[in-house]
Amino acid sequence: MRMSEGVEWALHSCLNLSWVDSGRAVTAAKLAAFYELPAAYLNKQLQALTRAGILSSSSGPRGGFQLARSPAAITLLDIVTAIEGPDEAFRCDEILRQGPGGDPETDYRQTCLISQGMRRADIAWRRELAAQTLADIKSSVEQKFPAAPLSTRNRLAALRA
């Protein structure tokens, strides 16, 4: 399974926003310029995060995006789901129904061992993402790279985008 690049962009943008002073918003253009990303495409990801209640946005000269919840209340699964949607990674199309001995009355999504295995893997993946919060990632980054919060704030402030 491969997630879209928007997931990576959204995760990093949320982490960067976690270091911005409370009450301050950052424009999509500045968030995009931080990593030299296309602003229009990043803005779509930021809008998806806003619809999911992860970010809030405001317009005007001091407008932009900020976290709508505390980092401890945002899981990695929240961010991934906001960008990729809630669907399972594997979709059983019940091809066994057309195979030898296929039964049109059987729900192969429930009885197929491949489908069951893929569902278990998807659940485990989602459980792991749901167990990690943005606060967990933020704390780990700050321990490993103590200068990251100040460096991020300074760089965002210096960007002219």
Rank of each mutant, 00 (worst) to 15 (best):
V26D: 02
A130M: 01
A135W: 04
T81K: 06
I95N: 00
R160N: 02
F145W: 10
L11C: 05
P146H: 07
T75F: 01
P71F: 00
A25P: 03
A72W: 00
P104W: 11
A148T: 13
D107A: 13
A82E: 02
A52Q: 03
Y108H: 04
S59I: 10
S59Q: 15
A131C: 03
T75I: 11
G23M: 10
V141C: 01
L156V: 07
T50D: 08
H12W: 14
I95A: 04
R62W: 09
L159E: 01
C112E: 04
F34S: 02
E36T: 15
S70N: 08
L46D: 06
Q66K: 15
Q116I: 15
K30V: 00
M1Q: 07
S4A: 13
F65G: 05
A32N: 05
W125C: 07
E36Y: 11
S4E: 09
I95H: 00
D78N: 12
R51I: 06
D122S: 09
L37D: 03
T152W: 00
E94K: 05
G64R: 03
S151T: 13
G64D: 03
A33C: 05
A73R: 11
T81Y: 01
G23S: 09
G85I: 11
G6Y: 09
A72I: 12
S22T: 13
A33F: 01
E5W: 13
T27A: 09
W9M: 13
Y35Q: 14
Q110V: 10
G117L: 13
A48C: 10
D87G: 10
P71K: 00
A72F: 07
Q143A: 13
L76I: 13
D21H: 11
A157G: 04
M3Q: 09
G85M: 10
G101Y: 10
P104I: 14
P100S: 08
I137K: 01
A39F: 02
G23I: 14
P104V: 14
L76V: 13
K30I: 06
D93Q: 11
P86W: 08
W125H: 07
E5C: 11
A28I: 05
K138H: 06
T106E: 15
V141I: 15
N43P: 02
S139Q: 15
A148F: 14
P104A: 14
D87W: 08
P61S: 12
L15W: 04
P104L: 14
S140P: 01
R155D: 06
T106R: 15
R91W: 03
R119Q: 07
D103N: 15
L150W: 04
A72Y: 03
E36M: 13
